[in-house]
């Protein structure tokens, strides 16, 4: 089976690891070979969390620079920071709601302009799907469901070798019962929103 390489970047606390977990379990359910790795040493302390998910016949669990087929960023400046993982054929999905790092507040850095981030990514990669996942999560009933919105959006791209069904089923069985309904709603909102972006 062809190899598909997915990178997810997020800020600690955005639920990146849960979304990777859902993808992994969904792949297991669908019989798609999967391997993943994560760097999350200081996630709870506001650092960057990066997951690599490799679908298909490969033994590696990490993804080299320039080799991601799809990049998903839960925060726009983090999506930009991870651009080194992309090549001209990469599809990028990003949340547009910024969560500026603390260094900006203390004057040790300037947060890049959101439009500029989008135009840079558009110019360098195959396609950008940009959405306000935070607003959609809020609409779904839980602002913390940003991860589910982006799961929906990345599924819509058709790049990852999984359809919505096994992912929805995994959300039902593997996420906390109290949140299943909002999680599914958030997933669907992301899925739909990305479809609009694809049409554009």
């Amino acid at each position: 089976m062809e190899t598909t390489r997915l990178i997810i970047v997020a800020v600690g606390g955005q639920g990146n690891l849960l979304s990777s977990r859902v993808l992994g379990e969904a792949a297991l359910l669908a019989g798609v070979p999967v391997r993943m790795s994560e760097i999350h040493g200081m996630a709870q302390r506001g650092g960057v969390v990066e997951s690599a998910i490799v679908f298909g016949d490969a033994k590696s669990t990490i993804i080299s620079d320039g080799e991601a087929d799809i990049l998903v960023g839960f925060e726009p400046s983090e999506t930009l920071r991870a651009l080194n993982k992309c090549n001209s054929d990469t599809v990028t999905v990003t949340n547009l709601a910024p969560a500026p790092p603390f260094t900006v507040a203390i004057g040790r850095g300037v947060y890049p302009d959101i439009d500029r981030i989008q135009s840079l990514i558009r110019e360098k990669t195959r396609r950008l799907i940009a959405l306000d996942a935070t607003a959609l999560a809020r609409e779904a009933g839980n602002v913390l469901a940003v991860n589910m919105v982006l799961l929906g959006a990345m599924t819509q791209t058709g790049i990852i070798p999984l359809t919505a069904d096994p992912i929805r089923e995994t959300i039902q069985t593997k996420t906390r019962e109290a949140f299943v309904e909002t999680n599914l709603k958030a997933f669907d909102l992301g899925f739909q929103q990305a479809e609009c972006c694809l049409v554009e």
Binding site: R45, G46, G66, S77, L80, P101, G109, Y111
Partner: peptide, 21 residues
Amino acid sequence: PRQPVDLGNVPEVPQRPPNLC
């Protein structure tokens, strides 16, 4: 080799070091 995208005109993204909670 696959060519990573050219990062020449990408502005410096502010660092996000881990911080005391």
